[in-house]
Design a binder for these strands. Structure first.
Lengths: 349, 349
DNA sequence: GTTAGCACTCTTTTGTTTTGAGTGCTAACA
DNA sequence: TGTTAGCACTCAAAACAAAAGAGTGCTAAC
């Protein structure tokens, strides 16, 4: 059977209607609301065909039609078109993102909040991983008799520091020498490389004169590097789903939210997701098969990549949401480019 | 009317039963389950009295009795006794808290998680404010041509640092001088004092020779101090309420969760709350009048005070929950005392 | 003072009927 | 041959009715 122009039109009408109403769509509705000069009976015939082709389903005999995942996919790819974001929304996004956009983390968090507010869905965002950051230099600084600070500066200007409690004393000279050796050894190497290669051993021979100090500093150094690998995950708008008919049943809502709460796993899903504006629908997802995800990446300094997106039932306003996400991520990338040489002006853990 | 021994016994039975069943308690139930040698009729008479006295209410004629806030208050004060935590739970708490208890923040977060898991309620915790921390010294360190790090060390060993992007160049001597002057001016002063008193002006005269540098550093300094004031709020176990009969209605659950999400306000409530094990019931709360809160404080280095607690419907297992909270906060305080001189071994923002 | 007995109340449960949205099929129409 | 009116049929949801059951309050007897 062929998917002719009329079938597409009808399918589009059904999907669009269902997205808004959350009710199975009947032939009368289509015939009346979207007047395409066809009687309900004709539309019924077409619907019957569309069902046979796998685009529609039927909760029960006397109910209207509901789009299948396949229909949503077609809708997203061919039918929905792209929706231009209203000017006032654009302005709102810009205003809110710009407003004290000092720290990356805070801004990302804010972006997620805006996103969930505008879409009424659960939003999430991950920060870029520092795994490919290369080190610029390492500095050890005295604090008090038994405490020093380990400071790691990376080439793109990010600074991480940790206080290190020493088990033995130290001299300023020791610190300086050690800073020098460490910088020499690790300059230009990426965080990931340092952690996977066993560069630490070489350090021990270079600094054999001060074993005690090395023994205290190295674990902190590694720990700090590990932390630079970490990707933070923010979520917002959890409660939005509680006003959606799909989750009017508390136990459904609970199991959905509990799944989302297993953050670690979710982070992984996002990290492995392609860049660009990505929409996955229903069973295209490895998990949460009755949900859709829309994500897009954002750039920091034109390079490091984080992601931002929403999750919700397959019945969602794809076009509208996609345009919101796209606009926010574009804006984020711009923000962290314009203020490019200001992005250092924040603390990194 | 007098609240005699028998009335108390009956009231206790009713409250205890209702806490577990969430169903209005009838006279038969009390007579059978808690055999105190009285017929349902007698108990009915007593119940009627208790209702008149304001301890019980009546959803409708043919329903059992439900405890009022007043009854819970009496129950908590006089009737419930104290429940000793089971040994395996104690062990579990200790094991989980001890396990890499490196950073205060992480540990607090973990404590909140344990708490919500054990109580099946929403838990929350606030970290101590740094408002009364006194400064030990301030250090400015070179990073690159246009960037320095501002490091603030407080007397109890906490370290905060921020990268400062400069609008002009600097020399090492400048930094050292400025570090010295700032340390001299602010050593021994509390964060709060520095922020309220206008000490900044004096700094400008002392360092008039390097206006540019001062102009860049002072805002960052203030900003960092502001941050030290901040109290972080963690919440966990949001979804627990979705399995409670009180919130089987999605819209009720949503409005409860939305109220909790207004974090800022909630933080304030907690900060202003008394120390010790505090239980507030129903309309004793200024907000969320159909909920109860149980909180306790924990100490860090024997001094700084954070708080940990749960929130849920007035029908909660007060004794059990109180003992869990008490045990966790005791343990937290102990953890951050034993490793007393190790608590510096973490980063502070 | 306690309790058995009983009428009464009111929610919950269960069953029944009605309604109405929507389909599928057939037959007529253009 | 495609379109449509008409109609029987289906099924969930709503409305209604009846029954069950939990529990009370009161009275009278112990």
């Amino acid at each position: 059977m062929e998917l002719n122009e009329r079938k597409l039109q009808i399918l589009q009408a059904i999907v669009a209607d269902f997205i808004y109403s959350a009710e199975p769509v009947g032939s009368r509705t289509i015939s009346k609301k979207y007047d395409m000069g066809l009687s309900p009976a004709t539309i019924r015939n077409e619907m019957s065909d569309l069902e046979e082709m796998g685009y529609l389903t039927h909760p029960h005999t006397s109910a209207g039609r509901v789009p299948s995942d396949k229909a949503y996919r077609l809708y997203v790819d061919k039918l929905m078109g792209s929706s231009e974001l209203a000017e006032d929304r654009k302005a709102l996004i810009e205003a809110q993102l710009q407003q004290d956009a000092a720290e990356l983390d805070d801004t990302i968090e804010k972006a997620a909040r805006i996103l969930s507010d505008m879409t009424n869905l659960v939003s999430f965002a991950i920060t870029p991983s520092g795994r490919d950051d290369t080190l610029k230099y390492i500095n050890l600084l005295p604090v008090d008799e038994r405490t020093i600070v380990l400071m790691i500066v990376s080439d793109d200007g990010q600074i991480s520091n940790t206080a290190v409690k020493l088990s033995c004393g130290y001299t300023e000279e020791n610190l300086q020498l050690m800073s020098k050796v460490m910088t020499h050894n690790f300059k230009g190497k990426s965080v990931n490389d340092i952690l996977t290669m066993n560069i630490i051993d070489s350090l021990k021979t270079d600094l054999s004169a001060m074993e005690g100090l090395t023994g205290d500093v190295v674990p902190s150094f590694l720990q700090t590097l590990e932390k630079m690998l970490d990707v933070d995950l923010y979520m917002d708008g959890y409660t939005n789903i509680l006003s959606m008919p799909e989750y009017s049943d508390v136990s459904k809502a609970k199991s959905f939210l509990d799944t989302l709460k297993a953050k670690e796993h979710f982070t992984e899903v996002l990290v492995n997701r392609d860049n660009g504006l990505i929409i996955t629908i229903g069973d295209e997802n490895s998990e949460l098969k009755d949900c859709s995800l829309i994500t897009a990446d954002y750039r920091v300094n034109g390079k490091l990549v984080g992601k931002l997106g929403v999750i919700g039932p397959t019945r969602m306003k794809y076009a509208e949401i996609a345009s919101v996400i796209q606009y926010i991520t574009d804006n984020l990338s711009k923000t962290f480019e314009i203020t490019g040489d200001m992005t250092d002006d924040r603390e990194h853990q």
